[in-house]
């Protein structure tokens, strides 16, 4: 067979393997009872939103949007943590890798299949939860009409930005999962990075102001270095825009997308490198 044909067939085979592994992993996720429980809790949270938003009679619609988006975000975060942190190490521990990785599948394809299944599941959940959240917001808005319009596009954008943020977080979880032999490092490491990454923008702005002049130069450099190294999750927060129907600058959306794609891509490359070196 001439070389280009060999390469083409190898590429086609990798694509087949990627799709097969993604679907198998998606099946695993969909059949997981713990995740059913999490989605059940999400349903209960959304059902309670109209009741809680009615406590604030003047801003019922705004509170309903805020609570719905927060509930969706919380659920997506829990799902990301559960799925991402239990991905690679658990497959090794359960010896699934001893059977799957001995098929003609490269470790990179295997890892990408895991990530893609997680991403697909989060996307499906985001769509379902957004639809349910929209109904809830509509109900609350009908009960106590607001002066502000409901910007459905911005609400969808806020959920989409959250989804992208959690894909990045999932990348971190998978990276830590490739080097770990148990639940602890991936789970607590990812959680710690999430908390730090969510607060880093505020800390950076704080030390960049007047307070920063009182900090020793070395500490300041360390704080700023950490800020640039950690993922900046504040870049994906469009919740306020959605709640108050504010216009989102296209530049910030484009920046968030490029930032997430680059960061997640780097994380996956690192994860693949680490997983390639690991003895199974």
């Amino acid at each position: 067979m001439p070389l280009p044909a060999v390469l083409l067939s190898a590429k086609r085979m990798s694509a087949h393997q990627f799709v097969a592994l993604t679907l198998a992993n998606l099946r695993m996720i969909i059949r997981d009872r713990v995740l059913h429980g999490v989605l059940g809790v999400a349903g209960v949270m959304l059902v309670l939103v109209p009741a809680f938003s009615s406590f604030s009679m003047r801003q019922s619609q705004e509170v309903a949007i805020s609570l719905s988006l927060s509930a969706i975000s919380l659920v997506l975060m829990v799902l990301t943590l559960l799925l991402g942190t239990s991905s690679i190490w658990r497959d090794i521990e359960r010896r699934y890798t001893a059977s799957i990785m001995t098929l003609p599948v490269s470790r990179v394809i295997y890892l990408l299949g895991k990530f893609a299944a997680m991403a697909l599941f989060l996307l499906i959940c985001a769509v379902i939860l957004t639809a349910a959240g929209s109904l809830v917001v509509l109900l609350a808005a009908t009960q106590y009409p607001s002066d502000l319009p409901i910007s459905w596009g911005t609400i969808a954008l806020a959920v989409l930005a959250d989804l992208v943020k959690y894909l990045l977080l999932g990348g971190i979880a998978i990276l830590l999962s490739t080097v770990s032999t148990s639940f602890f490092l991936p789970f607590f490491g990812t959680l710690a990075i999430y908390l730090a990454g969510s607060a880093s923008q505020e800390v950076f702005e704080y030390v960049s102001g007047q307070f920063g002049q009182e900090i020793p130069a070395l500490s300041l450099a360390a704080i700023k270095g950490t800020y640039y190294l950690l993922p900046n999750f504040a870049a994906f927060n469009f919740k306020v825009h959605a709640v108050y129907a504010l216009q989102v600058q296209p530049g910030s959306v484009v920046f968030a997308c490029i930032y997430a794609a680059t960061y997640t891509g780097l994380l996956l490359i690192l994860a693949a490198w680490s997983f390639n070196r690991r003895a199974l």
Binding site: R95, Y96, S99
Partner: peptide
């Protein structure tokens, strides 16, 4: 065939 194999146990044999 690995020693004491372990397969994706959430799948059926056909899957």
């Amino acid at each position: 065939l690995p020693e004491n194999p372990s397969f994706y146990d959430f799948l059926t044999a056909k899957e």
